[in-house]
Write a protein that binds this DNA or RNA. Structure first.
Lengths: 141, 141
DNA sequence: GCATATTTTTAGAACAATTCTAATTATCAC
DNA sequence: GTGATAATTAGAATTGTTCTAAAAATATGC
C-alpha cells in the first residue's frame, strides 16, 4: 500500500490542477521546503528557507502559497485559531466548538475519562500539563 | 457539593490574595464582565464592555487583568496558541505537542478510533469537520 | 498617620503576524 | 500571437498584543 499520508512533489502538480490551480515554482519550492525539514516552521521561517532557492520571492507570496497548499489539503496549518485570543470563566474540563458560520464559540463539556484517554496517546517522555481540543464546523442552533 | 467549576466575584479576592495580588476594581470588573456574558469575548470586546462601568480604563489594563486572571486560573485563554501559524505536510491524523521548554512542536500520531471517540462527545446538531488537539508541556528528548 | 516601597494603571509607542492593494509578470485558451 | 485570467511582487495598512515610562493607588514599617 502506498503511503498517502504525505503528498509528494509529483502529486502536488496534480492536486493543484484538480483545484484549477497552477503548479508554479514558488508553490513547489514552498512545498519542498516543508517536506525537507519537518519542524513546523512559521511563514517567516519558510520565507527565509525559500529565499535560498528563489531570492526574489516576497513574503506575501509565501503567505499566498501556504494558504493555497492548505486549501488543497496537502499542508496543514497548525495554529488555525488565528484571530484574537478569547477568554472564558468556565473551569470545567471542556473543549471548544467554533461555529464557522456564525463565528461563535461554544463550550463542549468533556468527560474526564476522555481527557485521560487522549493524554494516554502521548509516548513515554512526554508530560502534558494542558490539552486543548478545538472543533470547527457547523452547529444547528 | 458547591459548584467549583467557576470562580465567583467573592472568591476572586481570595484567589488573588493567595497569589500575592490585589483585588482592584479593574480586575473585578473584567472578571464580572466575563461571568455576565459567556460568549468567549476577545480582549477588545472585554475592553468595550468594561468601559461602560470604568470609562477611563485602558486597553493595556484589560490585557493586564486578563493575563492576571489566567495566571490565577480563574479564567481560561481559549486561543493559547498565540504565536505565528505553523505549517506541516503530515496528513495523518495527528495531534501536536508543544514543548514549552524548547518551543518546538512534535507530531503525535492519533489512532483513528480515538478521534472518533473525541468527536462522539459532540451533542446532536454539532457537525465538526475538523478537530485540533494540542498538548503543552515538556518532552524528554 | 506619614514616609517609603511596591503594585497597578495609564496612554501611547512599538512590535509582530498577517492581509490588502495596485501594478507587474507569467501562463493559459484560442 | 492576442486577450483573458492567474499569480507574484513590494510596500502600505491592519490587527492583536506587548512594552515603556510616568502617574496613581495601595500596602508596610515606623
Amino acid at each position: 500500500m502506498p503511503d498517502t499520508s504525505t503528498a509528494t512533489p509529483a502529486s502536488l502538480t496534480q492536486t493543484l490542477a484538480d483545484s484549477g490551480l497552477r503548479a508554479t515554482p514558488q508553490r513547489e519550492v514552498v512545498f519542498n521546503v516543508l517536506l525537507k525539514k519537518r519542524d513546523h516552521p512559521t511563514a517567516d521561517e519558510v520565507f527565509a528557507r525559500v529565499k535560498a532557492e528563489l531570492p526574489t520571492i516576497s513574503l506575501a507570496t509565501v503567505y499566498n502559497c501556504l494558504e493555497t497548499l492548505v486549501q488543497c489539503r496537502v499542508v496543514r496549518a497548525v495554529n488555525f485559531e488565528r484571530g484574537p485570543t478569547r477568554y472564558c470563566p468556565n473551569l470545567r474540563p471542556h473543549a471548544h466548538f467554533h461555529d464557522e458560520q456564525s463565528g461563535s464559540t461554544h463550550d463542549i463539556d468533556l468527560p474526564p475519562e476522555l481527557l485521560e484517554q487522549v493524554k494516554a496517546v502521548l509516548p513515554p517522555g512526554y508530560d502534558a500539563n494542558a490539552v486543548e481540543i478545538t472543533f470547527r464546523g457547523r452547529s444547528a442552533s
